[in-house]
């Protein structure tokens, strides 16, 4: 069984990369890419693992710079006994700088200011129930990742993001600093063609 799985992965990876490499994909201004995926985050202070549904949208100004917006919708914490927030949604907007040379493999780095909207979980206060206290918190994030463009309209992506911020509240202050990762299949079109 393991052998079959490894073989399948090998063939899939080879086919994908090989087909893509043969296609003369060229990054240029006008490329609009979007994706939706699950993201997993780990808070650096409380060590809680949080799960999100995320979506992002990028527009390439040229092959080197794109404008990017990311939205994260909090689904749940993995461990119910370590749940600092009842919810913690966030939005980011900023720029990505693309390190590649305009080909199908597109590594990038970037920075995005953002805003977080969260409600403190009952486990981090002395109250027996959720305190129902929400707060907006400014955050700053840095990201790194890559896209691998296949022919026509889709691409693989891996996106990692580090978020810096603090939930400040009279019941408790909690660090919002978190490392998030997402990967999957995204879509792209050239709106200037």
């Amino acid at each position: 069984m393991e052998r079959k799985v490894v073989l399948f992965i090998s063939i899939f990876v080879y086919s994908f990369f090989n087909v893509s490499a043969q296609d003369n994909f060229q990054l240029s201004s006008g490329i609009l890419r979007a994706q939706g995926a699950f993201a997993v985050g780990r808070l650096t202070e409380s060590k809680a693992t949080q799960i999100y549904i995320k979506g992002d949208l990028s527009y390439y100004l040229d092959s080197k710079v794109s404008v990017r917006a990311d939205g994260f919708y909090f689904v749940d914490s993995q461990d119910k006994t370590n749940k600092p927030f009842d919810f913690s949604h966030s939005l980011f907007t900023g720029l990505s700088y693309h390190l590649g040379n305009g080909g199908a493999f597109d590594p990038y780095v970037g920075l995005q200011p953002g805003i977080n909207f969260a409600r403190l979980g009952s486990l981090v206060t002395t109250l027996p129930i959720s305190p129902n206290v929400t707060s907006w918190s400014p955050v700053l994030s840095g990201h790194v990742g890559f896209n691998y463009y296949a022919p026509k309209i889709f691409h693989l992506f891996v996106h990692m993001q580090y978020i810096q911020g603090r939930f400040v509240n009279q019941l408790n202050t909690q660090s919002l600093s978190e490392f998030r990762i997402s990967f999957g299949l995204g879509w792209n079109i050239d709106v200037l063609k």
Partner: peptide
């Protein structure tokens, strides 16, 4: 396989660049 394919892709990217 992954290393070889990546190398090929990168070479092509350099050419495109």
């Amino acid at each position: 396989i992954i290393i070889t394919v990546s190398h090929d892709s990168l070479s092509q990217d350099v050419h495109e660049s």
